[in-house]
Write a protein that binds this DNA or RNA. Structure first.
Length: 944
RNA sequence: GCCCUGGUGGUGGAAUCGGUAGACACGCAGGACUUAAAAUCCUGUGACCAUUGCGGUCGUGCGGGUUCAAGUCCCGCCCGGGGUACCA
């Protein structure tokens, strides 16, 4: 029979469903393999051909592992909370749950057509109460946890309370904000009196007695400073257009990643996650996981570890000090001035009367600039002198204090020591403001630029003279430590993550407020489900949409009206797949112990600083607390590239309705317009279809090329409706079948690579499957498979193919497997091979790529069970190599001819054979060979 | 600027350990079958020179180097893609 893919695919998809072929259960007798795709947000647009690329690759790998006897967990679900459904709800009033449900149905329909081996009984949806029950549970668990910096481990908050009870906060290092104690001092009680009994210069130490004498309010706020998720007034990125705050990773180039709206800084009371505590753990963990180097690098940069020192500069004529952070304490003798961020708290108190106007004006200007404006700034270093001076800790000389917006309040201490000779920005600033420089590097006059090398010996630097690098660094820090004006310090760029969103369609917080304090709802009472609201917009007084519900806990206490961010549900979903219906816990310890880490995670690189960081963070917490048996969620990861669209362009001659073929367009003044890619085949436009496409083209005329064709131009760009370049998998499956689509998407090239979608080659892959089918049966339906023993040639083809396919899959080279199978089918076709002995193995090799056709052929070969569980064939070594090897013979590295020799011949005999060959003399041209190199079974090179 | 990637025919790509560069496929050209089309099959296809047959020269972004041998290793550049930044 000819290859009736539509019939075959429908039949086997139904059969798999009926038989539960892809259901998977824990089985301690089998080794496990957990392979995971990043679950999609079910958008209204459905899937285009780019989406399933990673899914197909992982599906193939999952099937391959199953053939090898592994118990394979390969689940799929939906990240179903999110903005688009909510925005649709705002426009139409339709509940986001309905929109989401509809979109999921469409996704499922499309996914099913591709023939994936997902166990759909394990499906998870982050928006279902059964799922977010456990997202809420994790939130309360994190609330009741603190991070012990000494042991680098998460502990239950009770161990910290116990410590406070017995020792106050002596000998304990909980992760917290550096200025936590200052923030507490600002708190007021009901009578507007300071909440705490500590004096204004309290350094944060407290005793057991202090703790014991604290009331409930005092203890609440104190503990809040150490919890891993905490409520605090913090500067957040507020996006007015979206009406919500955004985390740092949700902002790109100073505007919101979604929609590109402006973002401003605003102080708001928000839940945050203390991810900064895990900076070092997150950094170290990268060493143990097999991820693409670029993703690791992105995470390292995001964490932004820098080793340096803090130094304290006493103020001249003022009490107090300015603390600065520097990575170059060795250059401290080159300090010409200090610069504070305009927002630095000391600015107003130290500014002198003469400078006050100028400083206040500058601070105001800086405040008006948003993040983006500050970044786009020209290289010009703006700033103003405060009139105040500090005292250099080592020279005791006066150092002027400036403010400048190139210093950021949010990094380090918001203050820098400026060394124009050693830092280019300081140099620029000094030039601009005519501040004298101190030359501290040997043979460097700083007339052109700063000297940023660490390996230049220091001069004018007292005890550091002649030193450089690490030695100078350490000596400088030692000197500062001796006079108690500084110490070594490691600084991280990573900030805590804001966890509140002013949105409707997200997980509600299991939190209510009583007497102004947040309380977790008891874990036994979860889930707290989303209430209904009349509109999905903020209230008139600016409260989040949930406030419209007038929602109260026990009809009495105000609920938290924010919802959780998109990354909450996706930070732990890989755990839920292991035991998706458990109503007692996130997943049973048995299931988690069995399935363990995700062995292979497949997905896009765009989640490097979001999902992939947050998932690691939550897994670490849950691991430390004993809820999860591993500390890193994803052992290996592969990032699939993006599939871009290939738009087709037509060229209309200016002010006419005449279109000119792309190869002739240079002769005219033309305008580029898009043509729908469905009307274009191999860059040739179907002109009739084009005329019927849009009314404005009804009377279009065409100037054809000499072959009578209208050729289109093309452009590679993102797939989008407006460019008419979207290719859906559905159309291709209709035309060629899912098996062809699967093979073709792999055949396109390495999965990691981004590439344009081009349907040109799909015919070749489709023909390959037809040719393969013809090894089994003629197009007329005659079954050709025989039981005769196969000849050596066919078996050699078979075993070489098994070897290559297996090797390629093991090194995740999905694309070359298709070529290998093509070569094999071409060889067998030539050999007229129809032996069951050979073809049976072929069907198994094919089955990960083209499961429908494989299942059909397997069935016809007389098997009643599914091919998906057939054992992967093994390559027999004796068939892998020929008795003769065709040696390429090269002279001075240039290959001249081949010579067939016994493959097992030793190097010496090979040399003898070659030297006696008639052609050798010809190429030697009478010269004597200087050297003959023989690499057995590879090459012969004669040097002459 | 810094970091990470990548650069191979007309096109997508292959070459896994330094060992015959261009597998496989698309496209193109020619041919067979056919009333015709589709499908199928055969031949050719890196460039240039030579062509009656042999053959020869060049060639993996550019310039050097190491080696019997370099797409692959080393040094210095150029270009594309991604990330990131007044980060002190």
């Amino acid at each position: 029979m000819s290859y009736t893919f539509q019939e075959i695919e429908k039949k086997w998809q139904a059969n798999w469903k009926a038989q539960g072929t892809y259901r998977v259960k824990e089985d301690s007798n089998k080794k496990k393999y957990y392979i995971l795709d990043m679950f999609p947000y079910p958008s209204g647009a459905g899937l285009h051909v780019g989406h399933p690329l990673g899914y197909i690759a992982s599906d193939i790998y999952a099937r391959y592992k199953k053939h090898q006897g592994f118990n394979v967990l390969h689940p799929m679900g939906y990240d179903s909370f999110g903005l688009p459904a909510e925005q649709y709800a705002i426009q139409t009033g339709q509940h986001p749950a309905i929109t989401t449900e509809k979109n999921i149905a469409r996704y499922r329909e499309q996914l099913d057509k591709i023939g994936f081996c997902y166990d759909w009984e394990r499906e998870v949806r982050t928006s279902s109460p059964e799922y977010y029950h456990w997202t809420q549970w994790i939130f309360t668990t994190i609330y009741n946890a603190w991070f012990n910096l000494e042991t680098q481990k998460t502990e239950h908050i009770d161990t910290l309370i116990q410590h406070f009870e017995t020792n106050g906060n002596y000998n304990v290092q909980p992760a917290c904000d550096e200025k936590w104690h200052q923030a507490l001092l600002e708190l007021k009680d009901n009578n507007n009196q300071p909440l705490y009994f500590f004096s204004a210069d309290w350094d944060g130490d407290f005793t057991a007695t202090d703790w014991q004498s604290m009331n409930e309010d005092q203890r609440y706020h104190l503990l809040m400073a150490f919890r891993l998720t905490y409520l605090a007034d913090s500067m957040v990125n507020w996006c007015p257009a979206l009406g919500t705050v955004l985390a740092n990773d949700e902002i790109k180039d100073g505007v919101s990643e979604r929609g590109g709206h402006p973002v401003v800084q605003k102080k708001m009371r928000q839940w945050s996650m203390r991810i900064s505590a895990f900076a070092e753990r997150l950094l170290l963990g990268l060493e143990q996981i097999d991820w693409p180097e670029n993703i690791k690098e992105i995470q390292r940069n995001w964490i932004g570890k820098s080793e340096g020192a803090t130094a304290f500069f006493d103020l001249d004529q003022h009490a107090g000090q300015i603390e600065i952070f520097t990575t170059r304490p060795d250059t401290i003798f080159g300090v010409s001035y200090l610069t504070l961020a305009p927002e630095h708290p000391l600015v107003s108190s130290i500014t002198t009367a003469e400078q006050r106007d100028a400083v206040e004006q500058y601070v105001q200007q800086a405040a008006l600039k948003n993040e983006r404006d500050r970044q786009v700034q020209s290289k010009e270093m703006t700033g103003v002198f405060t009139g105040a001076y500090a005292i250099h800790p080592l020279t005791n000389k006066q150092v002027p204090i400036y403010i400048g917006d190139y210093v950021l309040a949010g990094y380090g201490t918001g203050a820098v020591m400026a060394v124009p000779a050693g830092d280019q920005r300081d140099w620029d600033f000094a030039k601009h403001h005519n501040i004298p420089m101190v030359l501290i590097f040997e043979n460097h006059d700083a007339s052109e630029s700063a000297c940023t090398s660490k390996e230049v010996p220091l001069v004018n630097s007292d005890f550091l003279n002649g030193l450089c690098g690490k030695t100078a660094f350490n000596s400088a820090v030692e000197a500062l430590e001796k006079i108690e004006h500084g110490n070594k310090k490691i600084n991280y760029r990573l900030r805590d993550a804001v966890f509140s969103r002013q949105r409707y369609w997200g997980e509600p917080f299991p939190v209510y407020f009583k007497d102004g304090k947040a309380h977790m709802i008891d874990q036994q009472e979860l889930p707290v489900t989303l209430p209904d609201v009349d509109k999905y917009l903020p209230t008139d007084d600016g409260e989040p949409p949930l406030a419209r519900s007038q929602w109260k806990y026990k009809n009495e206490f105000v609920m938290e009206y924010n919802t959780m961010p998109g990354w909450a549900g996706s930070s732990w979903y890989f755990l839920r797949y292991m035991d998706p219906n458990n109503s007692k816990t996130i997943a049973s310890p048995e299931a988690m112990n069995y399935w363990g880490q995700v062995d292979l995670y497949m997905g896009g690189a765009e989640h490097a600083t979001g999902h992939l960081l947050y998932s690691r963070f939550w897994t670490m917490i849950l691991h430390d607390l004993g809820h999860v048996p591993f500390g890193e969620p994803f052992q290996k990861m592969i990032n699939q590239g993006m599939i871009l669209g290939r738009s087709s362009l037509v060229y209309r001659i200016k002010d006419t309705n005449t279109f000119v073929s792309a190869d002739l367009r240079k002769e005219y003044q033309t305008q580029r317009l898009y043509a729908d890619i469905s009307m274009v085949d191999n860059d040739q436009l179907d002109t009739d279809a084009f005329k019927n496409w849009l009314p404005e083209y009804k009377d279009a005329e065409f100037i054809l090329n000499e072959k009578g064709q209208y050729l289109c131009g093309f452009e590679v760009e993102k797939m989008s409706k407006s460019k008419f370049n979207v290719q859906t998998p559905d159309e291709l499956i209709e035309k060629f079948g899912a098996d062809t689509l699967r093979c073709y998407e792999m055949f396109l090239g390495p999965v990691e690579q981004s590439k344009p979608w081009d349907t040109k080659g799909i015919n070749g892959v489709h023909n390959f499957l037809r040719r393969l089918n013809r090894l089994f049966q003629t197009d007329e339906g005659q079954w050709m498979v025989t039981q005769e023993a196969a000849d050596k040639k066919s078996l050699q083809t078979l075993h070489r193919t098994i070897k290559k396919v297996t090797d390629d899959l093991n090194r995740h080279s999905w694309n070359t497997v298709v070529s290998t199978l093509m070569i094999a089918v071409n060889e067998w076709t030539e050999q007229k091979c129809h032996q069951q002995e050979v073809l049976e193995s072929l069907v198994i090799l094919l089955s990960p790529y083209a499961p429908h056709l494989a299942e059909e052929l397997w069935n016809k070969l007389g098997h009643n069970d599914s091919v998906t569980i057939a054992q992967w064939p093994e390559a027999i070594a004796s068939y892998l190599e020929d008795d003769v090897f065709s040696y390429p013979v090269s002279f001075n590295g240039k290959t001249r001819f081949n010579i067939d020799l016994d493959a097992n011949m030793d190097a010496k005999s090979v040399e003898v054979a070659v030297m006696s060959h008639e052609k050798t003399a010809h190429y030697l041209e009478g010269k004597a060979p200087k050297k003959v190199i023989v690499v057995p079974k590879r090459i012969i090179n004669i040097v002459c």
